[in-house]
Design a protein around this nucleic acid. Structure first.
Length: 421
RNA sequence: GGAGAGAUGGCCGAGCGGUUUAAGGCGGCGGUCUUGAAAACCGUUGAUGCUUAAAACAUCCGGGGGUUCGAAUCCCUCUCUCUCCGCCA
């Protein structure tokens, strides 16, 4: 949620900034609702104050007639309060619903652009590998060598599900451990293992709800939702808390499965393991003060890239333009790996700075010292990394002419004596 | 799933219809004393809204609803926690 005071005090500025996102936002409606809410709130508070005073007078009064008169007076006031409160809560509900659908304001140095075609490639890392044969796709290798079973995945669960087998199942498990170990040992993150199912408040807190409910899986019976990313449970660990500044920055690394309906892209990317309804991911989450958030974003990107450097995977860093920013982000960088079999750049991580947007929704604050006022923290996160696409990158970059996969050096401690899959 | 108990400020804990603008303790912060520290003593100690800020005012005793002139306190309801039993990776 953005600060409603910005709409109150700098309405034209907010409208101008929102235009850069190329989505309609109802700023004027919000302004009107806010105005009437404040007026009504003030009036109601005055009435409550009068009632309070009268009640005290009744308690002190001895004269029965005066008591009766005052009682009737309060009854009359109560009726007024009741109508005003009903009106007030109706307005507040509408205002809140509108505010929850307002995206974050873009940071001043995000390039302005309409859609993903106007994203900016910042730079390239690790040279593309040279092949003396035509590199195969991961799904060709996977099917040929019985390492990915697409048919049985569909039989068990339906389209966009698959079964990893033997060396590929082990490769994914090794990668999860390698990523977590690296972040914990070298990048100073604290490991957490969160629930895969969360209540509704969590998803409102990080910004998936109410707007994107059609992309999420839900168990109607319990009212719990399956997490689309570990960002949701990990950030919400601190929901409704006031954190001591000495604890900041908080840095968590978490492995979870992620569940997404991927409705929007039905029919697209159906080949391979690039886009499934269930995938594994190691996620990095940071909670910081506002003044350190920018630096922490770049540190986060470095931590993400370090994994790819240790695996020697060619990749590039892309700065996301205003029109392609996600709903909650004020600034975002994507990390994309190169898959030579598919001849495609694949997004393996999205690193975002949310400013105070999520903190305001989830009510996460910090105090500079004992007597200072609580302020909203800033939240950040990035994948570190998404497993299927890193798998694709390793399979396709490390393949041999006869369809085997060489194990990258940094993964060898996780494979024992094996040299190939 | 069955039976019972409970939910109060950072923590513990009183409070059972109107001096509660929530007692008392612990912890935290500031001070006195001290070479320094401890102890002791004194003071202070939440959130939200409105407000340039402060003051004032309003709201907050798990959530929602009700009774009453007035609710932390009474009633209904939901959620959660704990104890015991049953079931189960």
């Amino acid at each position: 949620m953005i600060d409603i005071k910005l709409i109150r005090e700098q309405r034209e500025f907010v409208k101008k900034e929102m235009e850069k996102l190329f989505v309609p936002v109802q700023i004027d409606e919000i302004y009107e609702f806010d105005e009437s809410k404040r007026k009504l709130l003030y009036d109601t508070e005055c009435l409550r104050n009068t009632r309070k005073i009268l009640s005290k007078e009744i308690a002190a009064e001895k004269n029965e007639e005066v008591i009766l008169a005052k009682k009737n007076e309060v009854k009359r006031i109560n009726e007024l309060i009741k109508t005003q409160e009903d009106e007030l809560s109706a307005i507040e509900q509408k205002l809140n619903a509108l505010m929850l659908n307002v995206p974050n304001l873009p940071d001043s140095d995000v390039p302005v652009g309409r859609d993903e075609t106007e994203n900016v490639v910042v730079s390239y890392f690790n040279a593309k590998k040279k092949f003396d044969f035509k590199p195969k796709t991961h799904f060709e290798i996977g099917e040929k060598r019985d390492l990915i079973d697409f048919e049985r995945g569909v039989k068990i669960s339906g389209t966009r599900f698959y079964v990893l087998k033997k060396g590929f199942a082990k490769l994914q498990r090794a990668l999860i451990n390698f990523m977590l170990d690296t972040h914990i040992t070298y990048h100073d993150y604290e490991e957490v293992y969160p629930p895969y199912m969360v209540n509704e408040a969590c998803l409102v807190g990080t910004g998936q709800l109410p707007k994107f409910s059609d992309t999420l899986y839900k168990d109607d019976d319990s009212g719990l939702w399956f997490v689309p990313t570990a960002e949701v449970p990990v950030t919400n660990m601190y929901r409704d808390e006031i954190i001591d500044i000495k604890m900041l920055p908080i840095k968590h690394a978490a492995y979870t499965a992620c569940f997404r309906k991927e409705k929007m892209s039905a029919g697209k990317d159906t080949r391979g393991i690039k886009r499934g309804h269930q995938f594994d991911k190691v996620e990095l989450v940071k909670i910081t003060t506002p003044e350190t958030a920018k630096d922490e974003l770049f540190n986060l990107i470095n931590d993400v890239q370090d994994i790819l450097n240790r695996l020697d995977i060619p990749h590039r860093l892309v700065k996301i333009c205003t029109g392609d920013l996600s709903f909650s982000a004020k600034e975002k960088y994507d990390v994309e790996v190169y898959a030579p079999g598919m001849d495609e750049w694949l997004e393996v991580s999205s690193c975002s700075n949310f400013g105070s947007f999520q903190a305001r929704r989830a009510n996460i604050k910090f105090k500079r010292d004992k007597n200072s006022k609580a302020e909203f923290v800033n939240t950040l996160n990035g994948s570190g990394l998404a497993l299927p696409r890193v798998m694709i990158a390793i399979i396709e970059n490390y393949q041999t002419k006869d369809g085997y996969i060489r194990i990258p050096n940094s993964l060898k401690p996780y494979f024992g004596i094996e040299e190939f899959i």
